[in-house]
Design a protein around this nucleic acid. Structure first.
Lengths: 198, 198
DNA sequence: GCCCTCTTTGGATCGCCACTCCAATCACGC
DNA sequence: GCGTGATTGGAGTGGCGATCCAAAGAGGGC
């Protein structure tokens, strides 16, 4: 229900219909709705983390770890919104742990490793949250992806080029823009910065 | 109302009481509640951005810009939650523009400047969203900051050291941890990474 | 001073939501 | 076959955002 209709489609009423049951049955198993959402998000991420790579060189392993989370959230935007609301869920512990170990293997000194890991996790979650927001706008608009992007481009084109030269220039690059690629560039920037800490 | 009681304290009912008016008056000026929230968030950020520095060297100016947004969101957590839900608001245009120009001044080649700016914006918003989430947990717990942190530390201490050695080690550093400092370390990592692109 | 028009306001009302509560039912050890 | 705790269904509660419209205000033309 979350994947097909977004967060707003998952109401307890709709869930009782889908499961042909009542509220009592649901509330016997989960504390409240946010508990339900959090558990569902954990489930998705647990699936991703189980297929983690450990034996490659740290740099590519870190990239794989980050892009794994990105792809999972890209496929299930509601997970991104959920983790932006409630970080430090059990499932993210695995992610954080994986990043920490790989930074160790990468040669980051113990003193700054926690800050570096936190920075990387924050970046990944930040992109995830924004992707989730974009996806929500898309599914909420009622239109298909193509016309939605056209409308968005039209809006951006109206930005005053005199006041916002950089933003205006950015809009011209919107066509050749790929979220996943930009995310990877960001990961590489942080990895390059972390390398200077060695 | 947002600053004192968080997002959940701002209901339209409570607002009509506070302003001693009715729904009609409010809905005549704003489209809906999210419009109200977004406008309020814009207001806060506009105040921060107006005091931006342009004439210092790009590195310190970028740090100042980033930390300005961080501090504003730290003081008003609901702004962080709002921007994580709806990025690309007018107020963030100023931030994005400022980052872009400073990256230009910093010597980042045009080709990667947009990706770099996007990365930094995502990072700042990611940290902001997480800070907002933490603040929400704090105000929602009903306890004061000290006992809340003690409870949190207790929870983290229960993490299995065998399965999560890195996370477990991180908890021991929780005492000397400062969100703002860690944020700045992250910005510096980003800047170091950006330097390699020059 | 009066009327007309457009703007602004108040509040009753609607529909939907998460959540509570409890009687009824089920599963299973003895 | 009985008893007890786990599980289920669904009516009911209170609060929410949002709508709607009659009433009140503001201001211009004559």
């Amino acid at each position: 229900m979350l994947d097909s209709g977004g967060e707003k489609a998952l109401t307890l009423r709709a869930l009782t219909v889908r499961l042909s049951t009542g509220y009592g049955a649901i509330y016997h198993h989960v504390a409240d709705k946010s508990d339900l959402l959090a558990t569902a998000a954990d489930e998705v991420i647990a699936g991703v983390m189980s297929g983690a790579v450990d034996d490659a060189d740290p740099r590519t392993a870190l990239r794989a770890l980050a892009v794994g989370l990105f792809d999972a959230i890209d496929a299930h935007p509601w997970v991104g919104a959920e983790f932006s609301r409630r970080p430090w869920r059990p499932a993210l512990l695995d992610f954080y742990e994986g990043v920490g170990r790989l930074l160790d293997a990468f040669g980051v000194p113990e003193k700054v490793r926690f800050d570096a890991a936190g920075t990387l996790v924050n970046y990944v979650l930040g992109v995830a949250a924004q992707n989730a927001a974009n996806a929500r706008l898309l599914t909420g608009s009622g239109t298909d992806r193509k016309t939605f992007l056209e409308n968005a481009a039209e809006q951006w084109a109206q930005v005053d080029p005199g006041r916002y030269p950089f933003v205006h220039a950015a809009t011209t690059h919107l066509g050749e823009h790929d979220d996943r690629e930009q995310f990877l560039v960001g990961v590489d920037i942080f990895l390059a910065g972390i390398s200077t800490l060695r």
